[in-house]
Design a protein around this nucleic acid. Structure first.
Lengths: 132, 132
DNA sequence: CTGAATCCGATAAGATACTG
DNA sequence: CAGTATCTTATCGGATTCAG
């Protein structure tokens, strides 16, 4: 059974649960990390703990608002650890939890696919644009 | 080198490209399939070709508008094939392309992780909610 | 049956200014 | 340094209606 068949079989079990949020993991997962920044921040933290301002520099076009919000969600989901040292000025360091590190395995798989096949996706789009 | 280190190293190469959209595959990928429906539809099509109305039934809470729009994007990206048979009434069948099937491999990895660890994520959220 | 077109509300997300 | 608060704009996505 290849991955496509396995995925198809998986989908059919979800139907039996009627995609109940608490049991349908895809929905629950994508609602949380399917946004523009979550995966990128997890990638940034994979290289090691980073402070707030360091993350802001690493991901150039994220606003402070979105950075804070996304980190809060990742922290609430148990993927990221937030450590505050009560110095003056304050120093806050973010790092991956063991759960967050376990997530880097499938995340790396996704990114490997993207880097290997993204050219094909772009080509498909261009071919379609040319046809229109 | 484990996945976390590999991912961290990967991230650092993206910085050198300044996350240029055309070369940063994550951005390009997530902009397309990071929405609410794309991955779910790819899962639904993994079990085999499906007609438009069949997909609408398989994914109960998607509107026709979003179904059409999402399928069009997946088609434009070369992940899904759209076949129209000029009967009356018209019959349109969607199926995964070879590129789409290759994507089911990392997608299955992501879903495996979600099903294995989603309980931990939920628990983390509840613990946080209880603390607040 | 398979869409296209339009309208509209909800949410996401950027910019800016301010705080301990 | 590490946020918060507020405002505003942009986009998402649902409901409805119409068409080939």
């Amino acid at each position: 059974m290849d991955a496509t068949e396995a995925l198809g079989a998986r989908f059919e079990t979800w139907q039996q649960f009627e995609f109940d949020e608490s049991r349908c993991a895809v929905r629950g997962l994508l609602d949380r990390i399917g946004d523009r920044w979550s995966m990128l921040l997890l990638c940034a933290l994979a290289a090691g703990p980073r402070r707030f301002s360091a993350l802001a520099r690493l991901v150039p076009d994220i606003s402070k608002r979105m950075l804070t919000q996304t980190l809060r969600i990742l922290e609430a989901d148990g993927l990221v650890h937030r450590e505050v040292r009560p110095t003056v000025p304050p120093s806050v360091t973010y790092s991956l939890t063991p759960l967050g590190r376990s997530f880097t395995v499938p995340l790396l798989g996704l990114i490997d696919w993207a880097e290997a096949h993204f050219a094909q996706v772009v080509e498909a789009r261009e071919r379609r644009a040319a046809a229109a």
